[in-house]
Structure formats: structure tokens, C-alpha cells
Amino acid sequence: MNGYNFAYLDEQTKRMIRRALLKAVAIPGYQVPFGGREMPMPYGWGTGGMQLTASILGSDDVLKVIDQGADDTTNAVSIRAFFQRVAGVETTTATTSASVIQTRHRIPEAALSHGQILVFQVPIPEPLRFIEPSEQETRLMHALEEYGVMHVKLYEDIARYGHIATTYAYPVKVDDRYVMDPSPIPKFDNPKLHMNEALMLFGAGREKRLYAIPPYTRVESLDFEDHPFEIQAWDECCALCGSETSYLDEVITDDAGNRMFVCSDTDYCMTRRGEVA
């Protein structure tokens, strides 16, 4: 496309982001500051993830974009169209054939393989922010591994609700060192972070921070000995494909209170039904 550099960002910016990414991969879970650029959409819509995608995209990459697991939601459709236009890369909705997957709120159900890259859009990268408003202080806490306060939040959950009520953005410890916010993925997806074969990159556009989990990295969800980490479970199975192991969305179907549960990962659901999206 005329007038734009390949994948929208200029080459110097992409180099700067790639350098930051190398540092992030070298120190798993550590938040690396980067010079965030203005993207042609508002903060909160995935500007961080888009900048990372733009920096790592090559002309032979195959891009998949999901939002809440679905390929056909507004955010996913427009970001996919954007990169189709400014980079001319091939796009897909099939998890297995994509080389770069930009995601908001989910990790695909299909197992990722070595060589794939998962890019997360992150709203608040700092897991300690809820308890410590000062950035200087939280950085010091990370540096000195002062993570006692992370359990204060989990304690509050149990005291108030009788169980750990945090269901998304559930804090994890990466490679036994940094406590990290895995972006607002449901805690259902937390176990998939552990020893994953794919490279996982996290970009926060407003906060101008990026971090990474390299392939085959230990990722542990924080918990208490007598209240161990648990993922969500449903009594129903997917109404469309019958899956009992995937993350389900509840869909209201009429005004009479009828509802159905369907897979949030559309590609997974369609593949199981033998359809091609």
C-alpha cells in the first residue's frame, strides 16, 4: 500500500520494539519499557498488541486475530483487516496454520506448537498496581522480589467470598522470579502458559510496557496451600460441538431466559463440527 511502511510502523520504531522484545525474552516476566507510538485507534483497543505484531510480522507470516476467542468479533475483524491492508500478509482463522496470533482475553484451545507466536493485548501490565499506586515503588518491589502483597489480594478474596474469586488476570510467577499479570485471560487459560511451546509476547500500549514468556518456561499461578489454584468448570457442554473441555460462553437466546453455552474459541468449535470457517 502506498504511503505506509510495511506493517504501518517505521523501521526504526520496529527495531526499537524488537530490541525491547529481546530483553523481555531474556528476562521472562520482566516488564520492559518501550517508546509506544500512536496507533490509528484508541488506547484500550489493543494498541500494545498491534505494535508488537507490527514489529515481528514478516511478509511470509500468516496472521490470526482473536477477541475473546472469536475470529469474527469487531476488534478481531478490524485488526485483521488493518494488517491485511498495511502489510499484505496472509490471514487465517485456523489456529494451527497461523504463525502469529494476536489475542485479546483468550489463549486458543488447540495446542500451540513450536515456532508460533502469541501476542497479547494488555490493559494493565502491573500486577502490583491494585495495592501500590506508585510506579517507582512497584519497580522496586519487583527488583527485590517483595511479592507478599500479591497474596493479600487472594486472602481478601477468600475472606470475602470463601474462595479465590479472581477469575481473570490471575497473577502468575514466571520462572520462579517475576510475578506477572497474564493480561485479562480467564484463569482457565493459566495452565496453558506453563511450558507452552509457543513464544508469548505481551504488549501494553497505554502503559508502554512489554513482557514475554519464552517457550518452555515454568509459569505457576499463585495460591494458598489450603486453597489451591483451580480453573473454571461448567455443568454443560458446548451446545454446538459438544466439547466438555473448552472454555464456554453463556449466550442468552431470547427474552424468556433461555440460554445456551458455546465454545468461546470459534475456530476450535468449528473444527470440531467439521466446518471450515
Binding site: G148, V149, H151, V152, Y155, F224
Partner: peptide, 27 residues
């Protein structure tokens, strides 16, 4: 004090910082 969290969490915070990870004992 941490004004945003309960009295019990306030008392437990230093214990959690020391590595105490048992909710029942903290309580």
C-alpha cells in the same frame, strides 16, 4: 495500615511476605 483491605489481611500481610501460604493459619 492498608486501608483498602480487611483487618485480617492487614495482620496477615507480614506473614505472607515471610512466605506463609496457608490461609487457615493466617486467619
Amino acid at each position: 495500615l492498608r486501608m483498602g483491605v480487611s483487618a485480617g489481611a492487614n495482620i496477615g500481610e507480614r506473614l505472607m511476605a515471610l512466605g506463609q501460604r496457608h490461609y487457615g493459619q493466617l486467619r
